[in-house]
């Protein structure tokens, strides 16, 4: 069951700042518990959409910190713009959330 996600999007001078908080173990596959390696489990793809249009595509690895936090920026932007962010991981699990620019 993927953990919660939260987006905070705010308008600044000439750009909109988008910050997304994610809950994910980002397990590298190197860690051992009781001698046995914990299988790799990490987000591989992140997609950012503004009003339905994809603006950022991210490919990431297990080197991204646990419970990832990203900030992106888009040109201009208005209060009320719909920001949608989704992720998929190496196990095929996914999560997504949407918010309106504040």
């Amino acid at each position: 069951m993927p953990g919660p996600m939260k987006i905070r999007a705010t308008v600044h001078d000439g750009y909109t700042d988008i910050r997304v908080l994610m809950n994910h173990p980002m397990e590298t596959g190197q860690r051992k518990v009781d001698g046995k390696p914990v299988p790799a489990h990490f987000i591989q793809n992140v997609t950012v959409k503004v009003n339905g249009k994809t603006v950022v595509e991210g490919q990431i690895s297990q080197a991204i910190s646990r419970n990832p936090v990203f900030s992106f920026r888009v040109k201009g932007g208005n209060k009320g713009d719909k920001i949608h962010i989704g992720w998929t991981d190496n196990k095929g699990e996914s999560n997504q959330t949407e918010t309106a620019v504040a």
Binding site: L21, N23, P68
Partner: peptide, 8 residues
């Protein structure tokens, strides 16, 4: 602190 997941 600025890029923290704590709000979750």
């Amino acid at each position: 602190s600025e890029s923290s997941p704590v709000e979750l």
